[in-house]
């Protein structure tokens, strides 16, 4: 590369235009810009999304055709039971790349630069979370499409689906804020990969793949009441039109609290990291 750095005689240009807007307006703009950044990452790095949905798809085919015949669930064909659970598992898989992405930003120089700029630093977390929720949406569409191809016939109707999608969006927001928090906590990118596994495995200890009825007492009590099970049961009931009952409200409450708490923890951790 030749170095035709312009001659010193060319006095450096006109000063750039002054910054625009109020602090609130600027903060919203920072979020928009950084959401845009992370959305571009999805397009530039499609393997990330592919990895996140490939395993749930394998599980879907495995459970649908190999194990499914041996599993009976009350009131529903097994495939209708299975697909909502796998949607949730797929969302959990997407969260690992968020944990790693946040950790990479914080351990590299990028966030350091952001902190030295007159901008809202935690907007970088918002960028990761929103693009995470977007990836969750894409993996939902893929999982449902393949589900439909292998016999998934949800009877929930439009209202049921809208309710389910609303709950899943809230769940995804919670999961990705937890991911952002874990990423901000991790000291290294490698460590972040390990922490991300927590989110991946939580949905397995739920009613995602099999009903809890056959589990031993103590385990069943835990699994039945953990927030992922509550959410899956509610989503499953909504899309299949079997009535979510109290599960819907319970899931809403659980994941609202988790989202708010995880967001607060993530932002706090982000600021703490600045001090060292």
């Amino acid at each position: 590369m030749t170095q035709t750095l312009s001659k010193p005689t060319e006095t450096p240009s006109t000063p750039p235009p002054a910054p625009q807007g109020s602090v609130l307006g600027q903060t919203l703009s920072d979020m928009r810009v950084l959401i845009g950044r992370n959305v571009k990452h999805i397009a530039r790095n499609p393997e990330m999304l592919f990895q996140a949905v490939s395993l749930p798809i394998v599980l879907l085919l495995l459970f649908r055709f190999m194990f499914g015949g041996a599993i009976t669930v009350p009131d529903l064909p097994y495939v209708d039971y299975l697909v909502p659970g796998l949607i949730v598992i797929a969302i959990g898989f997407n969260a690992t790349s968020t944990v790693i992405g946040v950790a990479a930003d914080l351990t590299g120089g990028l966030v350091e630069r952001f902190r030295s700029m007159p901008m809202a630093g935690p907007a970088v977390l918002v960028g990761h979370v929103v693009s995470g929720v977007l990836r969750a949406g894409i993996s939902l569409v893929i999982t449902v499409a393949i589900g439909l191809a292998v016999g998934f016939r949800p009877a929930g109707g439009l209202v049921g689906w809208l309710g389910a999608i609303g709950l899943l969006a809230l769940f995804a927001a919670g999961v990705f804020w937890v991911a952002a928090w874990l990423g901000a906590t991790a000291k290294t990118v490698e460590g972040a990969g390990g922490l991300g596994m927590i989110i991946v495995f939580l949905p397995y200890a739920s009613s995602a793949l099999v009903p809890t009825g056959s589990m031993p007492g103590v385990l069943r009590a835990v699994v039945d009441n953990q927030p992922v099970t509550v959410l899956i049961d509610a989503v499953r009931a909504l899309v299949n039109g079997t009535g979510a009952g109290s599960d819907g409200w319970l899931a809403l409450a659980w994941w609202s609290v988790i989202t708010v708490a995880a967001a607060a923890l993530a932002v706090r951790k982000f600021h703490q990291r600045a001090k060292s």
Partner: peptide, 21 residues
């Protein structure tokens, strides 16, 4: 302190936007 996945131009435009231009 730049984004590896973005292009040089995208990086500059993003940072300029974060300076509220």
């Amino acid at each position: 302190a730049v984004d590896e996945l973005l292009t040089g131009r995208e990086n500059l435009e993003m940072m300029a936007r974060l300076f509220h231009l």
